[in-house]
Amino acid sequence: MKDMMDSIEQTVIDILARQAVLDPSDIATGDRLDALGIDSLGMVETIFAIEETFDISVPFNANEQNGGGLDLTTVASLIEAVHALTGETVA
């Protein structure tokens, strides 16, 4: 289970790194996504990549501050959201 947790974390960071054109090692879980240079369009692409990679649906609306109650502002909160959504998928 620990490996799977790490795998989700690493995959999300890889997706963010590709989006932000950074090396994965430059991304810390405490970073804010906007501080990584991911703007609103970048966020839409990031969510798309996450949905395709994990086969989940993220209830994200660019018009709302939060995505259906999910906090998507930091790397850590995004990873947490993916955990929650994949957990639901498995269940």
């Binding site: 839409v44 969510i47 994200f60 609306n61 660019a62 018009n63």
Partner: peptide, 10 residues
């Protein structure tokens, strides 16, 4: 479907 992608639809 195309518009859904932009996440701007209500």
């Amino acid at each position: 479907k195309a518009w859904e992608g932009l996440r701007v639809m209500s």
